[in-house]
Design a protein around this nucleic acid. Structure first.
Length: 435
DNA sequence: TATCCACAGGAAATCAGGGTGT
DNA sequence: ACACCCTGATTTCCTGTGGATA
C-alpha cells in the first residue's frame, strides 16, 4: 500500500508564494479566455450580429421585438453574440434600458424555477421561494412585477439550451406561456430568444410555439480552423503577455479544436490550460508540449468532474462495470451482469437501496451518452437480446476518480461473485463466439 | 420456420422531500 | 395541523424484438 510522505519536509507556503511572484509570468488577463468573456469584436459573426441587431432594433423605439431561435453547435458563439448585441443595444439607448434575463435551461431546469428565476432577477426586494407555491400564482405575480418594475421597457428572456427544456414534461407549456406574456401585459413588453445546439428539437415543439418563435432562425455555423485562429489571436492578445506563446501554439490549438466541429470554447480552454501548465512549471513560454498536456488534462478533467457529479447510484453502476472489466478484462459485459454486480455491491454500502433493471438500464444509457462507456444492442438468439457494454476510458482513470468517493472507495477491490460462477463463464464463452 | 430468451425502452404511477398559505 | 404545490428519483406495467436453436 502507498505510504504517506510523512518524512518529507512540510510544504512551505510562504516560500512558494514568493517564488511564484518572482517566477516568469504568462498571463496578463486570463479571464479573456473564459467563455463568459465578451470581447470587443467577434470575428466571423457579422452576419449573425447584423441579423440579431435588426430583430432587436425596434426595442429602441419601444416596440416589441420578435421572438426567435439561434442554432449552432457548442462553442459557435451563440451566447457570446447575444451578450455582445445586448451590450451594444444598452449603450445605444439612454431612455429605454432593456432588461436581459439569461436562463440556462440545463441549470434552471423546471417551469417553476424558470418563473421564479425571472421574478427574482427583476425583483429587488420580494423573492419567490425555491419551492412551494403553485405555478399560476407565480405567473400572475410575475405579470404584475413586469408591469411595475420593467414598466415601459422591454424584457428579453434568453433561454439557453432550450432543447433540454422542451424534452421535459411541462416544457412546452411554460414556453407557450412565456411566449404569450405580452397578451397579459399592459406596459411592459417581452421577447423570447431561444438558444439550442440541436436542430431537430423543433420536431418536439408544439406547433403554436413554433409559429410564435418565427419561421426563420439564426444559424451559427461551426468555425473552421482559420476562423478559430482569428479568434484565438484576438483573445490571446488580451490574455497572454507579449511573446509567451510560441509561434505555432495558436494554429495548433485551432487545428485541434477544428477537429471537434470547430468548438471555439474548447480552443480557448485549451489555450488557457496550456498557459496554466506552463505557469505551474515556471516556464517562460507556452510550447506545444504544454498544449499536448493540456488536451489530455482537459479531457480527463471533464470526465472526472462528470463522474464526481453523478448521483451515487449512477456511480455504483459505473463501479459495477469497472469491477467487471478490472477482474476479468476479457469478460463480455452485458446489462444483466451489471444489474447483478450492482445488486451485490450496493448491499455492501449502508443506506443504498436495490434498484430495478429498468432503472439500471437508464443509468447505462446515461453513461453511454456521456461517452464514458459504449453500448450497443445485440441479439444472442436463444440467449436473448441485450446490450454489450465496454468501458471507453481507462481503468486507471475510473479507479482514480472512484477512489475519491468515500462510500465507493472501500469496494474497489471487491471481486464480483458472478465472475466465479461456472455458468456465467460458460455463457460468456458462447457470447465470445457470437460476437 | 416457429419459438423463446433477456432484455430495451415508453408511459404513467408512486414516493419522499422540499416547501407554501390558511 | 392541514391541504396542497413542485420536483426528482424510482417503480410498475407494458409492448416490442433479433436471431440461434429445436
Amino acid at each position: 500500500m502507498l505510504k504517506n510522505h510523512n518524512n518529507h519536509n512540510q510544504f512551505n507556503i510562504d516560500k512558494f508564494y514568493k517564488n511564484y511572484l518572482k517566477g516568469p509570468r504568462i498571463f496578463s488577463n486570463r479571464d479573456a479566455l473564459e467563455s463568459s468573456y465578451v470581447p470587443d469584436t467577434l470575428p466571423h459573426r457579422d452576419v449573425q450580429i447584423k441579423n440579431i441587431a435588426e430583430k432587436t432594433a425596434c426595442a429602441l423605439l419601444g416596440d416589441t421585438p420578435p421572438s426567435f431561435l439561434c442554432y449552432g453547435q457548442t462553442g459557435t458563439g451563440k451566447t457570446a453574440t447575444i451578450r455582445y448585441v445586448s451590450q451594444k443595444l444598452a449603450h445605444q439607448s439612454a431612455k429605454i434600458k432593456p432588461w436581459w434575463i439569461y436562463i440556462n435551461c440545463n441549470v434552471v431546469s423546471t417551469p417553476y424555477r424558470i418563473l421564479a428565476h425571472i421574478y427574482n432577477t427583476i425583483s429587488r426586494c420580494e423573492k419567490i421561494p425555491p419551492t412551494g407555491l403553485p405555478k399560476d400564482i407565480i405567473f400572475k405575480k410575475l405579470l404584475g412585477l413586469l408591469d411595475s418594475i420593467v414598466g415601459n421597457s422591454i424584457c428579453f428572456l434568453v433561454l439557453d439550451e432550450i432543447d433540454i427544456l422542451v424534452n421535459r414534461k411541462g416544457g412546452n407549456e411554460i414556453l407557450y406561456n412565456l411566449l404569450r406574456l405580452n397578451e397579459n401585459l399592459d406596459k411592459c413588453k417581452t421577447s423570447l430568444i431561444g438558444i439550442s445546439n440541436k436542430l431537430k428539437f423543433r420536431e418536439y415543439l408544439d406547433p403554436r410555439i413554433l409559429s410564435s418563435l418565427g419561421e426563420e432562425h439564426i444559424v451559427f455555423p461551426s468555425y473552421d480552423a482559420s476562423e478559430l485562429r482569428d479568434i484565438l489571436k484576438e483573445r490571446s492578445k488580451i490574455a497572454f503577455l507579449d511573446g509567451v506563446l510560441k509561434e505555432d501554439i495558436i494554429p495548433l490549438s485551432a487545428a485541434l479544436a477544428a477537429k471537434e466541429h470547430g468548438d471555439a470554447r474548447k480552443a480557448l480552454q485549451l489555450l488557457r490550460k496550456a498557459g496554466e501548465i506552463a505557469e505551474r512549471a515556471q516556464n517562460k513560454f507556452v510550447t506545444s508540449k504544454h498544449l499536448e498536456k493540456a488536451q489530455e488534462d482537459l479531457e480527463n478533467d471533464h470526465i472526472k468532474e462528470y463522474i464526481k457529479g453523478m448521483p451515487l447510484q449512477a456511480q455504483l453502476v459505473l463501479t459495477s462495470i469497472y469491477l467487471l472489466s478490472k477482474f476479468s478484462p476479457d469478460h463480455i459485459i452485458i446489462s444483466g451482469d451489471i444489474y447483478d454486480v450492482h445488486s451485490e455491491i450496493r448491499a455492501l454500502i449502508p443506506g443504498v437501496r436495490q434498484l430495478t433493471k429498468r432503472r439500471i438500464s437508464d443509468y447505462i444509457n446515461e453513461l453511454a451518452l456521456a461517452g464514458i462507456i459504449s453500448a450497443y444492442i445485440k441479439s444472442m438468439g436463444h440467449y436473448g437480446r441485450t446490450k454489450i457494454i465496454k468501458l471507453d476510458i481507462t481503468n486507471e482513470l475510473v479507479d482514480k476518480v472512484l477512489c475519491g468517493i468515500e462510500k465507493i472507495q472501500m469496494i474497489l477491490n471487491h471481486k464480483p461473485i458472478l465472475l466465479q460462477k461456472d455458468k456465467v463463464k460458460l455463457k460468456n464463452n458462447i457470447f465470445k463466439k457470437l460476437i
